[in-house]
Each structure stands twice: as structure tokens, then as C-alpha cells.
């Protein structure tokens, strides 16, 4: 049994049209999977649907054998799925420390939380230095570190990242993918959406291509990188600057 199984999921916003038009996808325990695809393919929508922010109109989301359809986001996170959205979801007027505590909001065990906060500080010394500062005063890179640190505090079974590299300087992007690999080493499974397809796939074990609300391809990440058709259609000959 796969960790996460997406089964013919159809979803969209409000009364709007279907964005996902029957997506099938599996995520295996312990892997890093990267979803790529053009703008408007439904990549973010898929992650939002898994996280419970959108309700699937059809199909099933099954995590560890349990159907998640209809659960609230806070119930889904308690089952071990964390979602880091595209817009850095920080609390601007809370301090760095308070933001990390919010990361562990879903944890029942408070001593475990302080332990994990210490570990997050150990991995991101810059956050420790600034623990009393309000999140709004951090730079873009530091804010992303804080978001990552928050995921470390919760240490979910599955962590989903939506375009983590968006708007970051190149050297920080490299550092960021290191951190994502680190998640894997710490026992987390990663499902990631990246516009920055090459780097995203480089970091991943497996890749998946989403287009027009459907999965059009999946397989080992390096296989996708080498596939000439996919190169032409979805990777471009060169890395393009992202737009959203």
C-alpha cells in the first residue's frame, strides 16, 4: 500500500470550473516526489485538495488506508500531513519563536514541542539569533527558513511544499533543496510542486507531470529529466524565470 493514494480526484474553486479533472497519483513512503507542469495545470490545487483546503468534487484521497475526503484541514494535519503553501504562511506580528510554536500547534505533547524547537534552532542558527524578532522583519530567505523550521517542529509523516523556491535568490534555492533532502533523511515523505522543474527534479526521487488537471506522466526523477519529449514540452531548453 502506498502512503498516499489520489484516486480520480476532481476539484475546483467555489462554483468555478473543474481545475483537477480526475487526477490519479501515488506517493510512496519515504520518497521525495516532485510535481511539475505548466501554469494552471492544477498543481497547487492538488496540494490544497489533499490538505483539506478544498473539497474534492469526485474521487478519493486515501492516506495510510484512511479516506480523507471531507475532513477539515486541522483534522488532516493531525493525521500527519503538513502543507506549506506558496505564499509564505507566517504570522507577521508574532515572533520567530511564537511562529515555531504555531508550527507545533497540532502536537499534543508540549515538551516534545520545545525539544523540536531546539532542534530547529540547531539546524537554522539564524532563527535562534532572531527568535524574539517579529516574522515580518525577516528577509525573504529567512522567512522561508522559518517556514521550514516550522515543518521540522511538527515533523509530519508527509510534508507538501508548494513552490518553495519561489522568489528566493539562487544560492538560497540550493540551500533550500538541501533542506528538503534533509526532511527525507529525518524520516519524512515529501510531495513538492516546483515551477523550477530541473532543480526540483534533481532533488527528487520520483517525478510526475501534471497538465490540464490530469497526470500525463510519472516515473523516476532522472528518467523525466532525460526524456526528450518532456524536456521539450515541460522543461524548456533552459530554465525559465517563474511567473505566477
Amino acid at each position: 500500500m502506498s502512503l498516499l493514494e489520489i484516486d480520480g480526484v476532481v476539484a475546483g474553486y467555489g462554483r468555478g470550473p473543474d481545475i483537477l479533472r480526475g487526477v490519479d497519483l501515488t506517493v510512496e513512503e519515504g520518497e521525495v516526489q516532485c510535481i511539475i507542469g505548466p501554469n494552471g495545470a492544477g498543481k497547487s490545487t492538488l496540494l490544497k485538495t489533499i490538505a483539506g483546503l478544498l473539497r474534492p468534487r469526485k474521487g478519493r484521497v486515501v492516506f495510510q488506508g484512511e479516506v480523507l475526503n471531507g475532513l477539515r484541514p486541522d483534522q488532516i494535519i493531525r493525521r500527519g500531513i503538513a502543507f506549506l503553501p506558496q505564499e509564505r504562511s507566517l504570522f507577521p506580528d508574532m515572533t520567530v519563536l511564537e511562529n515555531l510554536r504555531m508550527g507545533g500547534y497540532a502536537l499534543e505533547d508540549k515538551s516534545l514541542m520545545s525539544e523540536r524547537i531546539e532542534e530547529a534552532f540547531a539546524q537554522f542558527p539564524i532563527l535562534k539569533e532572531r527568535y524574539k524578532q517579529k516574522a515580518r522583519t525577516l528577509s525573504g530567505g529567512q522567512q522561508q527558513m522559518l517556514v521550514m523550521g516550522r515543518a521540522l517542529v511538527l515533523r509530519p509523516h508527509l510534508v507538501m511544499l508548494d513552490e518553495p523556491s519561489l522568489g528566493l535568490a539562487p544560492q538560497i534555492v540550493a540551500q533550500l533543496f538541501e533542506i528538503v533532502r534533509g526532511f527525507k533523511d529525518q524520516g519524512m515523505t515529501v510531495l513538492m510542486v516546483e515551477q523550477n522543474a530541473r532543480q526540483g527534479l534533481n532533488c527528487a526521487d520520483r517525478g510526475c507531470v501534471l497538465d490540464l488537471g490530469q497526470r500525463v506522466f510519472d516515473g523516476p526523477a532522472d528518467g523525466i529529466l532525460d526524456d526528450p519529449r518532456i524536456q521539450e514540452l515541460y522543461l524548456g531548453t533552459q530554465k525559465k524565470a517563474e511567473t505566477s
Binding site: R72, D74, I77, P85, S89, F91, D93, R101, M102, Y105
Partner: peptide
């Protein structure tokens, strides 16, 4: 914490597991 989080960023609060309702 939950109230302040919801005040400052409702969707982020949802994402960290606050039952915003």
C-alpha cells in the same frame, strides 16, 4: 495563540492545524 494566528493570517492558521471556525 489560535486567535492571534487567525487574526494575522487566516489561511496560515488553517495550514498549521488551527480549527479557524
Amino acid at each position: 495563540y489560535a486567535i492571534r494566528a487567525t487574526t494575522q493570517n487566516r489561511s496560515a492558521a488553517q495550514v498549521v492545524g488551527v480549527n479557524v471556525e
